[in-house]
Design a protein around this nucleic acid. Structure first.
Lengths: 152, 152
DNA sequence: GCAATATAGATAGCATGCTATGAAAGTCAA
DNA sequence: TTGACTTTCATAGCATGCTATCTATATTGC
């Protein structure tokens, strides 16, 4: 005979909700620390890419950050408003814009990264190096399992 | 002497970005599968709590789902629009509302859970039971490290 | 009883993200 | 060259989530 309901299906048993919860907590911590710098969490991959590879197209930045094009467009609008990037007409392709990093962004990038590192450290406080590596590896596999694009 | 730049600080090395990326991918898969049911990913913990514990206050639902009160207010508005819950004046406290699950929601909950399970399975495809458990345990620890409320 | 405080929701404003769609400009084949 | 296709971006509309702040109603301590 069946037990009536031991626990009528626990959504908390799936890693999906924990991934989501962790993501939201990370966002909150980040945004709080980055606000004084006029940075947002989403800005970091963009500023990083621009610093490392020089001016780029919106398309390239979207691919780098793994977000859709309209998401990147809105993100760049906010970053422009915050004085972290500039958009100039692309020479040779009137459809496109060249996105460049500003001095302000270049100056503040190290501090933003410092905040990132601190939050990351807090998130994995009490983890051994091995556990950190394991978490990263498992998450990579989750992403591979879900990402429509095979590239990584 | 220093190497010029081995890799000028890689944000992808931190689990934080992978958690975020995985979370977004999960959302996309979910929303796509739940849309035909008039469900959203965020609805599930709410409908689940209402089914299991009966009518509740907004406050209780927010705590259960680990979201802030205004987030739950907006969520309930959408759920009400989609015919999944009803809000009635609370007898005995004129400030509060009683949130109740609708028949439609009760009917569709199993199907929504089925979709959830399938996405979860896809996310951890190729994982051993042990790896699944490890991922869950590490994520729990991340959440504990970041959650201001000690409870869990 | 009543003023001070606490609690339940509502609202405004914003950040991130998505899909769907349109417009402009480049490319290429006939 | 020119019509069809591709590519790059913009816009609209929406879901989730947050903080800050306001209102209305309870509760509590004198």
């Amino acid at each position: 005979m069946k037990v009536k309901k031991a626990t009528p299906w626990d959504p908390e048993a799936a890693p999906t909700f924990w991934i989501n919860h962790a993501s939201r907590l990370l966002m909150r911590h980040f945004e709080q620390r980055l606000r004084p710098l006029d940075f947002g969490m989403a800005y970091l991959p963009v500023v990083g890419a621009l610093e490392e590879h020089g001016p780029q197209l919106q398309k390239q930045l979207a691919e780098h950050a793994h977000v859709e094009q309209p998401t990147m467009a809105a993100l760049l609008t906010r970053m422009e408003r915050d004085g972290l990037i500039t958009r100039e007409p692309h020479p040779g392709d009137k459809r496109a814009s060249q996105i460049s990093i500003s001095e302000k962004a270049r100056d503040r990038l190290p501090q933003a990264r410092e905040q990132l590192a601190e939050v990351a450290a807090q998130a994995t406080a009490g983890f051994s190096d091995r556990e950190r590596a394991t978490l990263l590896a498992l998450l990579r596999r989750v992403v591979e399992n879900l990402d429509p694009s095979i590239e990584d």
